[in-house]
């Protein structure tokens, strides 16, 4: 199967591009980013605040399987309907520095659209850490599953 979501991350650069085409009109794709109850559904997060306007901001809260709460927040610099969102993103209480995100929405046809997320990091090392994070979490999840299995054997 062809990979639907593309990730571009060149060596020694402090940026990542994530590109995806959707079987959705651009209006619905954009709506998924600005309406709090919809963001909550697809991101699987609690939306504490989402003010999609210049000088606006957002704050999301997720709870992991262990019951720990994680807060994600940022400010919104630009929000042009069906075209673009410029915002910052930060994982509160972690050593990861704030990152800058340029989201570009494009209409491909009446029924299809394209999203390009261009994320800029403080340093090359910070970008690499962010890329590795899901890999590390995947290993932790595999280990947790192993631990659960081991516990049931006891």
């Amino acid at each position: 199967m062809e990979q639907q979501t593309k990730v571009l991350a060149e060596d020694n650069k402090q940026e990542i591009k994530v590109i995806r085409e959707f079987n959705l009109p651009v209006e619905l794709l954009f709506k998924a980013y600005i309406e709090p109850e919809i963001v909550a559904q697809w991101m699987g997060t609690k939306v504490l605040k989402l003010d999609s306007a210049p000088h606006g901001s957002y704050r999301f809260e997720t709870t992991d399987p262990k019951g720990n709460k994680h807060l994600f927040s940022g400010t919104i610099h630009a929000c042009e309907p069906h075209q673009k969102i410029i915002r910052t993103f930060e994982m509160e209480g972690t050593p990861f520095p704030v990152q800058l995100e340029f989201l570009t929405f494009e209409s491909l046809s009446d029924e299809t659209s394209k999203l390009t997320m261009h994320m800029v990091y403080k340093s090359v090392a910070d970008r690499d850490n962010m890329l590795k994070l899901p890999f590390a979490q995947g290993i932790n999840m595999a280990h947790n599953r192993l631990q659960e299995i081991v516990n049931t054997l006891k």
Binding site: T5, V7, F22, L24, L28, I38, Q41, G138
Partner: peptide, 19 residues
């Protein structure tokens, strides 16, 4: 990069399904 891509792919699949 692959787990990072899968994370976004899963999120975007969900977005598409919800919308």
């Amino acid at each position: 990069i692959e787990p990072f891509r899968l994370l976004w792919d899963t999120r975007f699949n969900k977005l598409e399904q919800v919308m």
